[in-house]
Design a protein around this nucleic acid. Sequence first.
DNA 1: ACTATATTTCTAGATATTTAGAAATAATAT
DNA 2: ATATTATTTCTAAATATCTAGAAATATAGT
Lengths: 104, 104
Amino acid sequence: MDHEGVAASLAELGNTHRLAVFRFLVKAGHHGASVGEIQKALDIPASTLSHHLARMARVGLIKQEKHSRTIVCIPNYHHLQNLIGFLQAECCMGENMAPDAASL
Amino acid sequence: MDHEGVAASLAELGNTHRLAVFRFLVKAGHHGASVGEIQKALDIPASTLSHHLARMARVGLIKQEKHSRTIVCIPNYHHLQNLIGFLQAECCMGENMAPDAASL
DNA sequence: ACTATATTTCTAGATATTTAGAAATAATAT
DNA sequence: ATATTATTTCTAAATATCTAGAAATATAGT
């Protein structure tokens, strides 16, 4: 994942609703949750939720699988790990560098 | 850092310019870099950069210290670690949970 | 006092996001 | 065929972000 991709993904997670959706999906587990289940749990109007989910899918934070009528949303753990890895590597330079790193 | 705070910080990092600034500051080290140095390195108009820096400071991603005429910007490693910690803890649940986690 | 430097604040236009109702689509059940 | 359910697409208004020139502020040097 390059600079632009990282920024795009962080921007998607940087919205209260979408962060809540992602956290919910992670808690739901690797088999995910349907749009309807998310909607009920987080109480977001259908069209609004659909819009947010589409954005998250677009950058690869989640996958969406159609099972007959319902659409199941699955968090992409791999993608998040990439994101975290980027932040660790590019923004923390190994681990820490300041003399007072211990206090962080 | 709570849900809202995390979302706000991720949103700030979710902008190409600001992510570039943050990365530059981390590379600059714990003593940071002046606004002018950032401006020269990343070639962003002064007023635009000032705006982005103010936003980053507002959520705590960086600190700004005035030294006579110049303002030095210092990355807040602690803040980023908190952010990473939140993502690890809240969005990865320990490490991995799916039977096929290896394939992720 | 005057000039140069560093940075911000003001301002405003262009663009993007957020929100959600209403209508549309698709699949299953009756 | 019709109704029901799940979800999307359309649409539009409200709000926020991004951008950058111009003017303002603050500090230091001459």
